[in-house]
């Protein structure tokens, strides 16, 4: 069973409930499929003059539906934030957003009549496609990441992970007391230079390669065999603690990677959607005034 499967089924927790993809037994998936099929059938069977494009009655119909749909889809941003009383449910909105949004690929493509060019009309279409693709990424992350995130955190919260790291730092400082100054410097540098969230790309990759803790561990391991006899034991302790910290850092970085992934796509999806809206306005204005 893949992670995605488990989402389309009723969640496998023992309490019966539906996730956003399965909402009301796929009500909006069914609606989207019906709309798409009907619009394709109509496209194939109506005979419009001179040919299918945005300017025919069917083109106008599809264009109007698509425009209204785009505006409505964008209202989810308001719905999410305007917490008003009433029988609405954001899960239902998300479900509809996903499936009806995807159906735009069919509706808008039919609206173009497959006429593309280097103009504002195709720009609007292209932007829409990018918005939808970024949306698919979002759905993929929403459907797969939470479970992996939960596994990775191992029943701890982000705050608890960070506290655990801080307490390891304290242990490191204590364990470094009996060491020679050179080692102590190494340990201190490992503590101060270790950044949990170094930058966007490192966060996404969650790599430990350039982490100060990894480096310190490598160097100490290298130095340990040649260390004086009485330094060996404390060094081993330090290395054990550093190993633990490394493992914890990996978990924390993975956690950050997941939270980043869950949000990153929105930084494309939303601005692109606004760009689409602007292009759409330009497209409509130009069609009506300058055709």
């Amino acid at each position: 069973m893949t992670a995605l499967d488990s989402h389309t089924q009723s969640s496998d927790t023992p309490i019966r409930h539906e996730g956003f993809l399965r909402h009301k037994r796929y009500r909006y998936l069914k609606a989207a499929v019906v709309i798409s099929i009907v619009s394709i059938i109509v496209y194939l069977f109506v005979d419009v003059e001179p040919r299918h494009n945005g300017g025919t009655w069917y083109g106008y119909t599809l264009g109007t539906i698509s425009t209204l749909l785009i505006v409505w889809l964008m209202l989810i941003g308001l719905r999410k934030r305007a917490i008003t009383p009433g029988h609405w449910n954001l899960k239902g909105w998300t479900s509809a957003h996903v499936y009806l949004g995807a159906s735009l690929l069919v509706l808008a493509t039919l609206h173009t009549g497959f006429q593309f060019g280097l103009n504002v009309h195709t720009l609007a279409y292209t932007l829409m496609v990018f918005v939808i693709i970024s949306g698919f990424y979002g759905v993929y992350f929403y459907a797969t990441t939470p479970r992996r995130m939960s596994d990775n955190r191992a029943q701890r919260s982000q705050a608890e992970l960070l506290t655990a790291i801080r307490s390891i730092d304290r242990q490191l400082r204590e364990a470094a007391q009996p060491l020679d100054p050179a080692y102590v410097r190494e340990v201190k540098r490992a503590i101060s230079k270790t950044k949990i969230r170094p930058g966007l790309f490192t966060s996404i990759s969650a790599t430990q390669k350039r982490c100060a803790t990894t480096h310190a561990l490598k160097r100490l391991r290298h130095a340990a065999p040649s260390a004086p006899e009485e330094m060996r034991r404390p060094l081993e302790d330090i290395m054990a603690i550093l190993e633990r910290k490394n493992a914890l850092l990996l978990r924390t970085r993975r956690h950050i990677r997941f939270t980043t992934l869950l949000r990153l796509w929105l930084h494309f999806h939303v601005p692109l959607a606004f760009a689409l809206l602007a292009a759409l306005v330009a497209h409509i204005v130009s069609v009506f005034f300058f055709w």
Binding site: K80, W88, N89
Partner: peptide, 17 residues
């Protein structure tokens, strides 16, 4: 409040029950 608990209504994925 009409609609019931806001935490459940405002969950985008249906995780809150």
């Amino acid at each position: 409040i009409k609609g019931g608990p806001a935490c459940v209504r405002a969950c985008p994925t249906g995780a809150a029950i």
